[in-house]
Amino acid sequence: MLKNKKNIKVMKLAAITMLFINVQGCGENVNKSDEKDGSVTALSLNGKEESHIHDNSTHSHTSKRIVKPEDAQQLWIFPESKDKLGSGGLLKIYMDPESHPDASSGFSKYELGVGGALPEHKHNKTEEIAYFISGTGIVINYENDERKETIVKEGYVWYTAPGEWHSFQNTGNEPLKLVFATVPNAKHGLLNFFKKVGVEPGMESSNTLSAEEFAKLASDNDLILKPIKID
């Protein structure tokens, strides 16, 4: 009988202990919920979106995450006249060191006119990745000092490493369109060169640079023109 009474007391004590733990746990959950609700309320009152805990301190808060077509800087590169692009190129710059100083690469779209071509050149520090959207053309590069021409069209990707001579031509009857990234997003790089020599559509093109001045401007922006061999 005494043994049964002791067992009953032990069971009662265990039940009371479990009940106390459960009540205490509920109280803690309520407090945590209140704290969370209070925090969200405070954030809402302040009008801030600080509920996200991601650290974006290394990213620029002035750069646009979404760039609309109308936001791109448009330039004519070597147009036929101020009113006609001709075999020149239409460049649309979406990302460069000025608009996205913290980005690792620049990003642009280029449309090379019918019959147009870029002179053979290389970049000592810059690599390029291009994706052809439409049109037909020829990409020129070198393997073991041997000149190669490769036909490119919609869907083709073209990678150029630093130090490689390269160029491309429009061989079709419509503009050859491509988008390309330049890495790194250097202040004095390929896009800066285009901005120096390009003009806004409809503006008179300036041709005041001598051949030596043009070559120096190109070189200063990591665009080295391939010397022309004279037989």
Rank of each mutant, 00 (worst) to 15 (best):
E98V: 12
Y94R: 10
L75S: 00
V67K: 03
I77M: 07
F78M: 09
N46P: 06
S87L: 02
I66C: 09
L90E: 09
E49P: 14
G88F: 00
L75F: 08
T62W: 05
V67G: 00
L45S: 10
D55I: 12
P69F: 06
A72W: 01
P97W: 07
A72D: 02
P69G: 06
Q74V: 07
L45G: 06
K48Y: 11
G88I: 00
S51R: 09
G86V: 01
L90G: 03
L43G: 10
E98W: 04
S60P: 08
Q73Y: 11
M95V: 05
M95S: 12
R65K: 15
S57R: 04
D96A: 04
H52P: 06
L90I: 03
T58A: 11
D55K: 14
S63F: 14
T58M: 15
D71W: 00
N46R: 08
I77F: 04
S63I: 01
K82D: 03
G47S: 07
I53E: 13
A72G: 11
D83N: 10
V67L: 02
D71P: 02
D55T: 15
L45F: 09
D96G: 02
E49C: 15
E50N: 14
E50P: 13
G47L: 04
H100G: 04
I66R: 05
T62R: 11
E70P: 00
N46L: 10
K92I: 11
L90C: 07
Q73V: 10
K48R: 08
L91N: 03
S51M: 14
M95F: 11
P69T: 06
P79E: 03
G89M: 11
D96R: 01
P79G: 00
Y94S: 05
W76L: 00
I53W: 15
D71E: 04
Q73E: 04
H61S: 12
G89T: 07
G86Y: 06
G86F: 05
P101T: 05
H59T: 11
L91P: 01
D71M: 03
L91K: 02
S87N: 07
S63D: 05
H52I: 15
R65W: 06
G89W: 00
K84A: 06
Y94F: 09
H61Y: 13
M95A: 12
R65L: 10
W76Q: 01
V67T: 05
E50I: 10
K84S: 14
Q74Y: 11
T58E: 13
S63M: 06
H61G: 12
K48A: 13
P69S: 09
